[in-house]
Simulated assay, not measured.
Amino acid sequence: MSDDALDDLIQMVLVEQYEATQAGKLSHWTVYHRPGDWPDGYIARRFEVGGGTGVAVATKSNLAGGDSALSMLRQVFEAAGLVCLTRSPEDHESVVETWM
């Protein structure tokens, strides 16, 4: 992946995080490996919590790639200033980690 493409992904994550914060919502990205609806590798899906419900709601935002995409996803989230939370034993087996 080119540096420009990587910079574009980082910028997109930063904008999405900022917009969620401005709307009073907490945004997080959960990384999955080969979930049922994405058998081609890794996908990171963005969720928002807000509005007093405490329920995470999926957004339309995602970043995806093949089996080698995990390092790229981590690089994007780290560069955007997010922090990695390791998976919980209760998580679905396809969950790798969550970034907030």
Rank of each mutant, 00 (worst) to 15 (best):
V83E: 14
W29G: 05
D67H: 02
Q22H: 05
I10S: 14
T53F: 08
V76G: 03
V31D: 14
I10H: 13
M1A: 15
G50H: 04
E48W: 04
S61H: 14
L63K: 00
M100C: 12
G50S: 01
Y42F: 14
P39H: 01
G51H: 02
D7S: 12
R45S: 14
N62S: 15
G66V: 01
S71Q: 00
S27W: 07
I43C: 09
L26Y: 04
T59K: 07
A20V: 04
S71N: 00
Q11E: 15
V57F: 03
A23T: 10
W38E: 09
L82I: 07
K60P: 12
V15Y: 04
Q22Y: 02
S94G: 06
L26T: 04
C84K: 12
L82Q: 10
S27R: 12
E19P: 04
S2T: 12
G24P: 05
S27I: 01
H92C: 00
H33Y: 04
E48F: 09
T86C: 12
M72A: 14
Y32D: 08
P35W: 01
T98C: 03
S27E: 09
H28G: 01
L82T: 10
G51L: 08
T30K: 03
N62F: 14
A23Q: 14
Q22C: 08
E78P: 06
E19C: 00
P35Y: 04
P89K: 05
L6W: 02
G81C: 06
E97C: 13
G50A: 10
E93C: 08
A44Q: 01
I10W: 06
G54F: 02
L73G: 03
L85A: 14
L85F: 12
S88N: 11
S61P: 08
G52I: 14
K60R: 15
W29F: 08
Q22G: 09
P89L: 07
F77P: 06
H92R: 01
L14H: 11
R46M: 15
D91K: 01
R34L: 11
A79C: 12
I43R: 00
D8I: 04
A64D: 10
D7I: 03
A56G: 15
G54Q: 05
T30E: 10
V76N: 03
G36S: 13
K25C: 06
A69D: 13
A20S: 10
G81M: 11
D3G: 09
M100S: 13
M12P: 03
E90L: 13
A20E: 03
S27C: 13
